[in-house]
Simulated scan of single mutants.
Amino acid sequence: MTAANLITILRFLLVPGVVWALLSGRVDWAFAGFLTAGISDGVDGFIARQFNQRSELGAYLDPMADKVLLVSVFVVLGFMGELPLWLVVAAVTRDALIVCAVLLSTIMAKPVAVKPLFVSKANTAVQIVLAAIVLGELALGVNLGLVREVLILLCGVLTAASAGAYLVPWLRHMTGNGEGAARSG
């Protein structure tokens, strides 16, 4: 167990606190928890690289911690009416489909390479910024109106593009019609 992995595990433990804070109307605490998670993500990555603490466990835990926090925040913000439900459903469905595709591929003895695509990284970045903007608006009592709307639309487009970018190569891989393999991220 490395220091970087311990920080990642602590990020998992922040998730229930952020969700509880949101559902309890303590958006300031939720915003602080979300920012803390973001900072800790950078810190654990720095520690892993700088002190040669990269590990296979960390390679799986780190993106999982990010996704669990992001999906949880998206779902609660959708429940609160702060994000459109279509976007929440699209984001959660995309992630669930990728996980199911990887599992099915493994079960069928046709494992796929798990490498993030640029569109997926862009999608995750926009989701993080959108969640931070919404939480910040709520916590600080500001309204960035058009910024939020543009991020919602961009997030929707990137979610659809990312889903398609994984689905097509995965289908080719599973049917034997091409060299492409689905990637995750």
Results as ranks from 00 to 15, higher is better:
F12A: 06
L14T: 11
V15R: 05
V15D: 11
P16I: 08
G17C: 04
G17F: 12
V19C: 03
W20R: 07
W20T: 02
W20L: 08
A21I: 02
A21Y: 13
L22R: 08
S24F: 06
G25V: 14
R26E: 15
W29H: 09
W29A: 10
A30E: 13
F31I: 01
F31P: 10
A32D: 05
A32N: 04
A32P: 07
F34S: 09
L35T: 09
T36H: 07
T36Y: 10
T36C: 11
A37R: 09
A37M: 06
A37L: 04
A37S: 15
G38A: 08
S40G: 01
D41M: 03
G42H: 11
V43A: 01
D44H: 00
G45S: 00
I47N: 01
A48V: 04
A48G: 02
A48T: 09
R49C: 01
R49I: 07
Q50M: 05
Q50N: 12
F51N: 03
F51Q: 04
N52L: 03
Q53H: 03
Q53T: 02
Q53W: 05
R54D: 02
E56K: 03
E56R: 07
L57V: 13
G58E: 10
G58Y: 13
Y60R: 00
Y60A: 03
L61D: 00
L61A: 02
D62N: 00
D62E: 01
P63G: 00
P63E: 00
D66C: 04
K67A: 14
V68L: 12
L70V: 09
V71C: 14
V73D: 04
V73W: 06
F74G: 00
V76M: 00
G78T: 09
G78N: 12
F79P: 05
F79V: 11
